[in-house]
């Protein structure tokens, strides 16, 4: 599902940057009535709970904005999250909605994103709300190449960072912090918190860090907790990747 782009090699550090393309379902909203939305969403999910479980989702606001409805993005995202879906972007939002969305750490995609959308004619209309049919094996797709998220300050206990693509952190990640990426994770300092790469199932995702002291590491749902990390891999630069569904932790050897 991921499409690798040109590899860049750094002479001193054995790292790798990738651009990936993801398929993400889009939820087209047609009402500002959040309780109605909540109800119908629940109904939809009941039809295919496995399909929807922790599914990433882009919210399309074009229809409601065209109708002049006013929705609070925070509340809207709350409703969708409560239903067990993970909002990874909004599309066709207005200035205020985009601002609210970014404050929630949710990326904003422009309406032009629709150009590359593979329209799905099997949309099931339920009253006001159009949802993607879970029975259709081919959900509407939005193709976006997600930019890398760069964080230059320490990620402190209690903070959570989500990146829709790769995540590069130039400072330490404290115990009690959580960094999550759909792509790769790079930490150019000490990693003490929880790091989850490839959270949408990308088996190719990797975690790189300068000093492994993590509470938890996970790639595409395969995880190890601190207790599982032996002394041989702790406190040094490592890369972590999946091989035959097993997490491999390997030293990064720096060439000087």
């Amino acid at each position: 599902m991921s499409q690798e782009s040109k590899k860049t090699t750094n002479l001193t550090i054995a790292l790798e940057f990738k651009t990936s393309t993801f398929s993400v379902p889009v939820l087209i909203l047609a009402t500002d009535d959040l309780s109605m939305l909540e109800q119908q969403l629940a109904l939809k999910i009941k039809q295919a709970p496995e399909f929807f479980k922790n599914a990433p989702l882009v919210l399309d606001l074009q229809e409601i904005n065209k109708q002049g409805y006013v929705v609070d993005i925070t509340e809207l995202v709350g409703v969708v999250r409560k239903a067990g879906l993970l909002v990874v972007g909004i599309r066709a939002g207005n200035v205020l909605q985009n601002k609210q969305s970014l404050e929630l750490g949710i990326p904003v995609y422009s309406a032009q994103g629709r150009d590359s959308v593979v329209e799905n004619k099997n949309l099931v209309k339920v009253d006001d709300v159009a949802l993607i049919s879970p029975v259709s094996s081919k959900p509407e797709e939005i193709k976006v190449s997600v930019p890398t998220t760069l964080i230059t300050h320490p990620v402190r206990s209690g903070q959570r960072i989500y990146a829709a693509g790769d995540l590069v952190i130039m400072a330490q990640v404290s115990a009690g912090a959580e960094i999550i990426a759909e792509g790769n994770i790079h930490v150019y300092s000490t990693l003490r918190g929880r790091a989850l790469a490839g959270v949408h199932g990308d088996n190719e995702a990797r975690i790189f860090c300068f000093d492994l002291q993590a509470e938890l590491i996970s790639i595409a749902g395969n995880y190890k907790v601190s207790e599982d990390l032996g002394a041989s891999v702790r406190n040094k630069p490592v890369q972590i990747y999946l091989q035959d569904n097993a997490l491999i932790i390997k030293d990064i050897v720096l060439h000087h």
Partner: peptide, 11 residues
């Protein structure tokens, strides 16, 4: 740990 948490809030 609590100080670290507070630092996150400050920032």
């Amino acid at each position: 740990r609590d100080s670290d948490r507070m630092l996150g809030i400050l920032s």
